[in-house]
Design a protein around this nucleic acid. Structure first.
Lengths: 157, 157
DNA sequence: GTACGATCGTCAACGTGGTTGTCCAAATGG
DNA sequence: CCATTTGGACAACCACGTTGACGATCGTAC
């Protein structure tokens, strides 16, 4: 096996988590400055999953890999914060459409901009090729887990 | 800013999370096969923080960046699962020492071995230099957030 | 030796994010 | 027309975190 004692295997996940956490913390520090102090890390992913076209609670649950009940409760909280709103579907009285409010759209747009700025900051520090290499390598070893965002339940169980 | 449209900034955190998640999922799939099916991702970090020498709930909370109450409750669950045990401190009747059981030590030892194997698998797939470069780069941009493990509360809020 | 402040552990109440089970209303399809 | 499926909501529960309060114990200053 010949494991390098200077690079124990358990450091790799900690570094990946630290990198993720650094980006998310920097994002939300900047979003708080730009008028979104109440947005939590999880919320950004939910807004991304709702998308500009809106969706329903059940479909949202499927996208995020959680139950429709959990999706519904999360929508409740984001409605209370003013990021989402519900509306009736005129063509199906069972469905309740979930869409972004202007405030939610603003948050989503700003998130994309700040993420681009943060990636640029990493490119300035490491070199653009190194960041691209990191992305390519991660894409190669981490199959598309991208949209599974049940992080709290997954981690804690 | 000249952001490459093929590499939007929001992908970087998703890839880091996917990489972390892949490693942790692979670890726990293997641990489940080796006699630890009940260990959750969070638990491994807690065992690591307890260490072979044992500690107390308050000190554990400080290491993990959570309150002493939350640390105490987590210890309760790991005691119920047989990974930790409590003992009185003969020199201070206020303190309750928290130490690993043999089962806990076994889990911790196996985790280290599996993490080494997983890192080796990445090195085989990407090349040893690429994995080392990823580690070095992450260390450069992500300051030592390593031991903040309040992930569920941090993420969900 | 006693009284005081600091520390450790615990209990209680609560918020957030998940789960499963149940149930009703509405759509769908034979 | 009726049976089945589907969407949403409600209830009960668990994991993990928080703050506040409270005994019990230790250390120290007097």
């Amino acid at each position: 096996m010949a494991t390098d004692p200077d690079r124990p295997g358990f450091l790799l996940p900690l570094l990946l988590l630290a990198g993720f956490r650094t980006l998310i913390d920097d994002l939300h520090a900047e979003l708080a400055r730009q008028g979104h102090p109440e947005l939590r890390p999880l919320h950004g992913f939910v807004l991304q999953a709702v998308g500009a076209d809106g969706t329903t609670a059940t479909e949202l649950g499927q996208r995020l890999g959680i139950s429709k009940q959990a999706a519904g409760k999360t929508v409740d909280r984001l409605v209370a914060l003013g990021y989402l709103e519900r509306a009736d579907d005129p063509r199906d009285a069972r469905r309740k459409l979930v869409r972004m409010t202007p405030h939610g759209l603003d948050g989503l747009r700003r998130s994309a901009i700040v993420f681009d700025q943060l990636r640029q900051r990493w490119a300035d520090a490491l070199g653009p090729d190194r960041v691209a290499a990191m992305e390519d390598d991660l894409r190669a070893v981490a199959p598309a887990n991208w949209f599974r965002l049940d992080v709290p339940g997954w981690f804690g169980g």
